[in-house]
Design a protein around this nucleic acid. Structure first.
Lengths: 230, 230
DNA sequence: TTATTTATCAATCCAAAGATGTAGGACAAA
DNA sequence: TTTGTCCTACATCTTTGGATTGATAAATAA
């Protein structure tokens, strides 16, 4: 199968020269891959990525000089249509999570068998995202952990459900940073009416001011949130 | 291996009676599992879960009567030490994401081979989280998609980096809903000093009031966020 | 029908927040 | 030493926000 496909161009970035050489030799043995560059410097790696436009980058993320995760992020911003596989010595859940979060298409441990790396590259070259089973499990533990409390509270009796439709509209505008005047203008009602609604919202949510109301809303599933944990 | 371990108690919830029967027969053939209950009703399933305390629940999440995801969430709130595997006819990324988010330990398609289901149960019974490779890939596509914009902006010129250490402390307290007095008390400085800091923060973040500052902070990776997309 | 809820608006009052200018002391870099 | 930044603090003033009370009209539930 793989033999008939066009070769994938690979760039290697790993501050450990020995490991870099080893991986290079390994991949060179694979007919479906062509190593177009190899460097021990993250910054140099970014430059090589711009220059050679590889299909795949194998990026060591445990580098002292420059953080590999940061390098992945920077490469991501370049819109190079390159797929990055993170290489790491550690199966730390937080590392895995962060790597996947910033768009790594795979995460492979350096201690894994070389066949596993090649398999990951095959999958990623085919447009998939690949994580070894054991790491997937780690990832999900971390992932679910970050939602643990939310899962318990969100379906619960949540004061937000006491709000009327109009109050929800007002709260929504509050969560967008509007003041009374802004809300009044957007809802075509008077400022005093808005004040009335906002005061009712405070009562119902049991908060003292708009900032607390906004925080309550955001922390309890109100409004569209698109971000996650650091 | 499995034969020597204590049997895992399984509860089946699936509104499709035929499929329910099929799965039950399948699992009954496995010596390591004991089906302690089977029902076509999500609500009944929750009651059975409370009553029999199964080790594993296979939950169909595509039920008309009651949403299976909601049922998983409710079971999660009971703290029953039960592991739920979601069964679904669809490999929709959003469904998978939501199921995993609320704590499902696995997600298996009804169309998958029975061996796959048993394998998933084995893994989950062993304390792991199991997602078939194909679904893992879907999950990650969805996952990374929800971070796409953030990945591009967060490393970018972010006004938060202009803040001094003290200002960050103040902003952090703002994002917790504190007013001037509260912040002054917590930092052991005068209220007027807090005002100075806050005003400087407004300048640097280019916002007009505390609510906008808090929203900016939350939307730009500042502070501990534990929530994600709806 | 009668109550209740909801949405609207207003007046008033006080507290809090925000804008602006000034300034001293600590500390680090040039 | 000088310069600059940061943290601290205060005074003053204006604006906004929040609490409270009261009122009208429409829709809705009992």
């Amino acid at each position: 199968m793989r033999e008939f496909k066009r070769q994938s161009r690979v760039l290697l970035i790993d501050d450990n020269a020995d490991h870099l050489r080893g991986v290079k030799e390994l991949i060179t043995l694979e007919s479906s891959y062509d190593v177009v560059g190899a460097t021990t410097s993250a910054n140099m790696g970014i430059n090589l990525a711009k220059k050679y436009r590889p299909d795949i980058i194998l990026m060591d993320i445990n580098m002292p000089e420059k953080d590999g995760l940061q390098a992945i992020q920077e490469i991501g911003k370049l819109d190079l249509d390159v797929r990055v596989i993170a290489l790491s010595a550690y199966d730390d859940a937080d590392l895995i999570f962060r790597a996947m979060k910033i768009g790594a298409k795979g995460y492979v441990l350096k201690t894994m068998a070389s066949a596993q790396l090649i398999y990951a590259m095959d999958e990623v070259a085919a447009g998939k995202i690949y994580l070894p089973t054991a790491l997937t499990s780690r990832f999900f533990e971390y992932f679910q952990n970050s939602f643990k409390e939310e899962a318990k509270t969100s379906a619960e009796e949540n004061l937000l459900s006491d709000l009327t439709a109009r109050e929800e509209e007002v709260l929504d505008l509050l969560t967008q940073g509007n003041n009374y005047k802004g809300i009044a203008g957007k809802l075509f009602i008077s400022e005093t009416t808005v004040k009335t609604h906002v005061n009712n919202i405070f009562q119902k949510l049991q908060v003292n001011d708009r900032t607390q109301a906004v925080l309550y809303a955001l922390n309890n599933g109100f409004a569209q949130r698109r971000k996650i944990v650091a």
